[in-house]
Write a protein that binds this DNA or RNA. Structure first.
Lengths: 211, 211, 211, 211
DNA sequence: GTCTAATCGAGACGGTACGTCTCGTCTTCAC
DNA sequence: GTGAAGACGAGACGTACCGTCTCGATTAGAC
């Protein structure tokens, strides 16, 4: 995707503007048509670009959409709202807001579905979309521990396990609420959800495998 | 007194065997090819049926796959394992086992993705797949209340809200764990998850919006 | 095509009205749709008849159309206009009038085209449509001979050869004028044609194989 | 800075070889299958070409077959055999030889039948197949006039009328003999036919409408 | 100031699946 | 046993995209 000219290269360099135009056209097409009716020829036309140009940069529809959707999640960050509960509510609301946008709804679930049979695609999704958000969980735990809201981490092995569990619960619940139940993940719902999650995490001993 | 023509039907009746063959062929194709490479012509051939026969019964790939996948969830039931926690663990493990099957993985997320742009399809998914499982939540709560594990329901309005929340959390977490994180929802994970969920629900006052 | 009920038969007899309705519906469909867009299902519907009924009587589209078109030619007859030339002009004009009707244009040439690869069909066309008209040629020659316009036939073998030639020339010219040149075979053209034909036949020694 | 490509053409040019391969495959399919069983998908396969390539060049079966058959008639020419009668016999025999080929028999009548309901198709047939042969009639008349076998043309208006009549008679008779009567237009028949035609034309005053 | 090579647009190419249509047969119930 | 209704297996239709491949026409860095 990069347009560097690595000194030894000759010939006309790739247009940097084309990349941006293609990704924007992809999101626009996702909004108007949805994943299944999006075609690469149409995206190329919208971007004012030839199909050749598009295929030179992305190997197919899946990869293109992952990149187009990933940019939407770059804006996610952990707000400092003074308490762990408020921080969680804030980030969950941001996540819900992104999932409310049609280009995210339509594209994200589709590429996840495709990824069930394509390991390389799943890795790309994880690297571009999922893992960056996991950092938010870690960051939130660290901040809460600084505030004294959480005890210091006893077992370093349990950290990863707990982070994964939290992440699956947060992302899963918001996605299910938004896309399957088709109800808004609004402030009231987020407050209910956060209360259950937080009480569960603090009340339960965090993760000893012996039960 | 056999009135054999229900609702004034005439002509050759539709073959009941064809429906079953088509749904089975659809699941087989999902396993072998996955959603995106599944074609209705191929499904018809596998089922030993003409394309017209298939199109006479289903309007498209989405509807067909919803029905094919829905049958997989018919086997879900709430086991009586003696305690609320054990009951939940049991049903979550069943749910995870279904999601571990390739015909469910491949098809379910794809139709959910399609449903983001097709309200009728979302309704069909809800009616065929989601809502029947919500009954399991209600049944589990009733059984726990009989055992004295849960207090009697105070606010009838809050019931629906809580059930919906529980359902989004359970289904969402398992789906995300299985399909996005691509890690097995095994007994250990289910135990961790159930502990957090159950402590969260009992520790938190269930649902007053004035929290 | 016959609807007899030969006394020893049991069960419901075939409807005689159905045959007529089907042939009429066929001609109507030829007018509205033409040969290539005519479908047997549509004909059955127009005739108020089930497809089964139609297939029980005709083996296919070709045979049906031959019968439907053949009825149009039943009205052809040799008028007695007082001279051979006038008689020929009269019958040619009748033939041209039939070919001007869309159900004949559309159907006749199509079945002839089909007959190039189907000997049974060609025989059926000849028996139903062509041969009856050949009798008109024979009848015309006999009448002219009675009037003294033609000499008595010298060579009985040559009769058939000459009749065939006349028939090919008359039918061929009218068909080509009407369907290929797409010009009307009107009185003026018929007069020109008849003059050439008649002068040619009388001036030329009729058919000695030795040249 | 304008595009210098002739007629504004850009992009990959169409393959000239594909056209030839498609027309040859069409004739081959006409021989093996006949008009009604010829399918465009099969023609494309025979030609080693995708269906899209075929549809990009021809709008349907009719147009394709007209072009495929038209090439068969390109070989027609007026031989110089020394006399008008011999010239006519020669060209009629050539015409009959073409119509004896199964790819012509099968295709020609079918497109003529289709043309009864499609003016554009009829024009195409006329332009591609019929009109070029009319020149042969004109050429033959001119040559005969040079030889002194025909008087100089008196009425220029009558020329067209006579040429049209001759053409309808020649083409019609040969087509009818070959395709409807299904008898060979061999040398004997051609001699008989030519004698009648030529005597008719010379004996009858050519075309005054006051006859 | 050429030369050179990868880029660009456009669009034709061989494929594959689509969803529809018609075929001719078969199966049911009503008469 | 015939008739209307309509489901059935089969297969062609013409369209839409796929991802690849030529084209001529830009570009910008290398010479």
């Amino acid at each position: 995707m990069q347009s560097r000219t690595p000194a030894g290269r000759t010939g006309r360099p790739r247009s940097a503007a084309a990349d941006a135009a293609i990704l924007a056209a992809t999101r626009q097409a996702l909004v108007e048509l949805g994943w299944s009716k999006l075609t690469l020829g149409d995206v190329a036309t919208r971007a004012g670009v030839a199909k050749t140009t598009l295929y030179r940069r992305w190997s197919g529809k899946n990869e293109l959409v992952v990149d187009a959707v990933a940019e939407l999640f770059d804006e996610l960050e952990l707000p400092d709202r003074g308490s762990l509960a408020a921080d969680i509510e804030g980030v969950v609301l941001q996540f819900a807001a992104i999932l409310a946008r049609p280009e995210a709804r339509s594209g994200l679930m589709a590429v996840v579905a495709e990824a069930t049979r394509d390991d390389a695609l799943r890795d790309r999704i994880r690297a571009s979309i999922v893992d960056p958000q996991k950092d938010l969980v870690l960051e939130g735990r660290a901040r809460a521990r600084t505030r004294g809201e959480l005890p210091p981490e006893p077992d370093p092995l349990a950290v990863s396990r707990t982070v994964d569990l939290i992440f699956d619960m947060v992302a899963g619940a918001v996605v299910h609420r938004t896309l399957v139940s088709a109800e808004p993940a609004d402030e009231e719902w987020v407050r209910d959800f956060t209360r259950v999650l937080l009480h569960g995490l603090t009340a339960a001993a965090p993760g000893p495998s012996g039960g």
